[in-house]
């Protein structure tokens, strides 16, 4: 069984849990006391990830670190439809990769601000908040025109990709880092859509959406 070295309140761990839930992949959690125990910095955890960060995924002895890399691995291995990581469509794959890199930016700004506010991590709060707003302004414009041309997801595809997963919690939890989403209506709409994906799961601060059909 797949093991995920996980911390409940980590956005990066959540990205892995979310994709595994959507792909219906069984896994077990190995809790790492990221806070307040800082156990990811322990010598014991160093044996699992010498870089001392979570998440880490262990799939039958194959060990891989970094959320975005884990998403690539999981989607390639467990999504037989090849839509989440579209390896058979070079243009779409390139687009996905560029948005995955964009997500590194949102993680290092929006999610860093949240770590600073919630868990006291040492980041220049004003700087990371400003950085997040800059990226969100661009991202919101992108999503507004995606909507206007009939698209629902980050990339120009009918189906969401792992780029949507990589960006989703950074955006939704940004408000915990003092980054208001009030100026980004297109991002809020997209986030709501993500919450309606079959297999969607919640985490602290990420609530479900209402049903999008008459019930």
């Amino acid at each position: 069984m797949i093991k995920l070295y996980d911390f409940e309140l980590s956005v990066n761990c959540y990205k892995c849990r979310l994709l595994m839930s959507i792909l219906n992949v069984d896994y077990e959690i190995v809790p790492v006391d990221f806070y307040p125990g800082f156990k990811h910095k322990s010598d014991e955890f160093k044996k699992i990830n010498p870089l001392n960060h979570i998440p880490v995924l262990d799939d039958g002895g194959y060990v891989i670190r970094d959320a975005h890399a884990i998403l690539v691995y999981l989607a390639t291995k467990y999504d037989s439809t090849k839509r989440w990581y579209p390896i058979e469509n070079p243009e779409l794959l390139g687009e996905t990769a560029s948005w995955m890199l964009f997500a590194e930016g949102t993680t290092n700004t929006a999610s860093a601000a949240r770590l600073n506010v919630n868990l006291g991590y040492d980041f220049d709060l004003e700087k990371v908040q400003e950085g997040a707003h800059k990226l969100f302004r661009f991202f919101d414009e992108h999503m507004w025109f995606r909507n206007r041309s009939g698209g629902k997801w980050v990339c120009d595809s009918e189906h969401p990709t792992i780029a949507d997963i990589a960006l989703f919690p950074d955006v939704v939890l940004a408000e915990e880092g003092g980054i208001s989403l009030i100026d980004y209506p297109a991002l809020r709409l997209w986030a709501e859509r993500m919450k309606r994906l079959p297999g969607f799961i919640v985490m602290g601060g990420i609530f479900p959406a209402s049903a999008d059909r008459i019930n």
Partner: peptide
């Protein structure tokens, strides 16, 4: 305070006017 297409089916829209959220 919003465009009509900001309010798709079952959405809740966050706005602000004159300091009032």
């Amino acid at each position: 305070v919003a465009n009509a297409d900001d309010l798709p089916f079952r959405h809740t829209f966050h706005g602000k006017l004159l300091g009032q959220e």
